[in-house]
Nucleic acid binder design. Structure first.
Length: 579
RNA sequence: GCCCCAGUAGCUCAGUGGAUAGAGCAUCGGUUUCCUAAACCGUGUGUCGUAGGUUCGAUUCCUACCUGGGGCGCCA
């Protein structure tokens, strides 16, 4: 899937037959890479010469002598032990960028083989507060959903909420004790932790309450209609709260995406039976387990995946296995993404392995754990509030918007109140999301208000500001954006060239971001793009320039703005036209 | 004890087997009759955790070790 516009891909395609000819085999890679010494460098002559036992510079010379780069390069130079440094012609870059400008997808090709992708993310617990752990899953999952949809895949969002299990006996009884109206008030206002803690405290203090709670769990599991009705109300109240948070966060999750634990209860018996038929079940200390090779416990003995406890209950592993079956057989998914914290790695690997052993999960279908690290405070420990509790996600978002509002009020007092409030929301929420997405997801990251909300450095506000500045130019020029798409591009100044090269790299970056499920790659790119634009903006006057440079620069601005907006959009971040 | 992840500039972080390892922040200095100065320009900054190995070439791949974090059967 070569990028249509990226000069590096084009050069690679041009050189591939030359390398194949010299090597005498079809798969010799030219190894074309970006270079800080030229526009690109070709490294493939070195390994090829090694294989052939000849001089790398001679191989490089043969590549250069082929002349296939004459149309696109103004300079082709052999350097060092056998590198080939390339300088593209301005007209080549300009022509490529002009074709990108006419493309709504900015050069990104749709996936050649669309897949059905299930993204499992967010997963808060009913009657429990959403906290920063849910932030990571929700924000990363949302970005992956948007990226895969953009690439042309069929995406199914699944919010695997915790709406089933032992705690629900006590939660239902507590709800009944409070009276539904009182409970609804507390839960509706988002005091989920208060509700849960009160129920838990009662459970620890009162044996009478414990008995009621246990009885209630039995009723719940028996699907007693009255109990189910109360349970459903509890779930609904929490969902209302979750949807409020999702709405403020600006993620795509809706009620339609709910796929709670409870939904998999009826499927577990079937999954369990099929494990038995596949001959995978073994009894171990009274429990039914599957031994997956390669997993050991602390005594270095085989570690079982317990699918039915000695008491006869199904486990979360059973639920996860039923879930794999459901996604593959009912939804016909061939890519299962689990956006779940890194500590779950072993559990998920065991589930995946067992699903493979059972023959449910097999190529081309694959399951991938999209693991992520923790959010840390400035003490480098898990982020906690002053009271030592986990930080409520809603409090976090409140503070983000408040801080952004203060900044906007200070920096641009001319904005009217409504616009200012909307801009503050966009900047505050964008800053929180970008701070999360811009770090390699597998690593922990330090949560720092001042840094994420700064208008300098690798932050959402800096990118949003760059976009807003461009939009300001269009307003001043009275330009209709659509008219800019076909304008001829001429590249004279070095800052224009750098910007053009950066813009042409966008499709490659999007592809790499998807391939590694790594949103931070796109973030890094967008930051570099914004920097290149700022440099261009300082050095190259747009409005005052004579034609055809003025039109060309307007077109450069237009493609830059569209790339920033689309790129941020793929991350779930809005780009205001003024701020 | 076993397994997983991380370790790169004072701080926060990028880095695709390629040449001299890069950004941002912070420091210091400069730029505004000019499209948003929320910006830009300049300025130093390194035992890429340690030691081996593979390779023409290793921050990148492999092995061992060190440090930090996490996980390791009937909760989810």
């Amino acid at each position: 899937m070569a990028d249509v516009a990226n000069p590096l891909s084009i050069v690679s395609d041009l050189l591939a037959p030359v390398f194949a000819d010299i090597a005498g085999r079809p798969d010799a890679d030219p190894v074309v890479r970006p270079s800080d010494r030229a526009d690109a460098q070709v490294n493939g002559a070195l390994p090829l010469a090694k294989q052939m036992g000849t001089n790398p510079r001679e191989v490089a010379q043969r590549v250069v002598d082929s002349g296939v780069l004459a149309d696109v390069c103004s300079e082709v130079e052999i350097a060092g032990p056998g590198f080939i440094n390339l300088t593209f012609t301005d007209t080549f870059l300009a022509a490529q960028l002009q074709s990108v400008a006419l493309d709504d997808r900015l050069g990104c090709p749709p996936a050649s083989t669309p897949r059905t992708v299930v993204v499992d993310y967010s997963a808060p617990n009913v009657a429990k507060e959403m906290h920063v752990g849910h932030l990571r899953s929700t924000v990363i999952g949302d970005a992956l959903v948007r990226l895969h949809e953009f690439a042309g895949h069929r995406v199914i969002r699944e919010n695997h909420i915790g709406d089933w299990g032992r705690p629900f006996g006590m939660l239902i009884e507590h709800l009944l004790d409070l009276g539904e109206d009182v409970a609804a008030e507390g839960l509706g206002q988002g005091d989920l932790d208060g509700f849960y803690k009160a129920a838990n405290a009662k459970f620890n203090e009162s044996t009478e309450f414990q008995e009621r709670a246990r009885d209630r769990v039995v009723l719940l599991q028996a699907r007693d209609p009255e109990t189910i009705e109360i349970w459903q109300r509890l779930v609904d109240m929490s969902n209302t709260y979750f949807q409020g948070v999702y709405s403020r966060l600006g993620v795509l999750l809706t009620d339609d995406d709910l796929a709670g634990e409870s939904g998999y209860q009826p499927l577990m018996e079937g999954a369990y039976e099929r494990l038995g038929k596949a001959g995978l079940l073994e009894e171990n200390d009274g429990a039914q387990v599957v031994f997956a090779p390669g997993f050991t416990n602390r005594d270095n003995e085989p570690l079982p995946l317990i699918v039915r406890s000695s008491a006869g209950a199904f486990m979360y592993a059973t639920s996860d296995l039923a879930c794999v079956l459901d996604r593959i057989e009912r939804l016909h998914a061939d890519l299962l993404l689990y956006v779940i914290g890194a500590p779950q790695a072993q559990h998920l690997q065991m589930v995946f392995t067992v699903a493979e052993m059972a023959g449910w999960l097999r190529p081309p279908a694959e399951a991938v754990h999209i693991a992520f690290g923790s959010v840390l405070g400035d003490d480098r420990k898990m982020l906690r509030s002053r009271s030592g509790d986990s930080v409520k996600l809603s409090d976090l978002l409140d503070e983000a918007v408040e801080r952004a509002a203060a900044a906007v009020a200070e920096k641009n007092p001319e904005l009217d109140a409504d616009t200012r409030a909307e801009v503050a929301r966009t900047i505050g929420i964008g800053a929180v999301k970008y701070a999360d997405l811009s770090n390699d997801r597998i690593k922990d990251y330090v949560f720092d208000w001042d840094r994420m909300l700064a208008f300098e450095g690798n932050t959402a506000p800096y990118l949003q500001y760059a976009h807003a500045r461009i939009c300001s130019i269009f307003r001043r020029a009275g330009a209709d954006r659509i008219d800019l798409h076909g304008l001829a591009i001429v590249l004279g100044q070095p800052q224009e060239r750098e910007l053009a090269k950066r813009l042409l790299a966008y499709p490659t970056v999007v592809a790499e971001t998807l391939a590694a499920y790594a949103p931070h790659k796109l973030c890094t790119y967008l930051f570099e793009l914004a920097q290149d634009f700022s440099t261009f903006y300082e050095h190259c006057q747009v409005m005052q320039a004579d034609e055809p440079v003025r039109s060309s620069r307007l077109a450069l601005c237009d493609v830059t703005a569209r790339t920033l907006e689309q790129g941020l959009g793929l991350l779930g971040i809005d780009a205001p036209e003024a701020m």
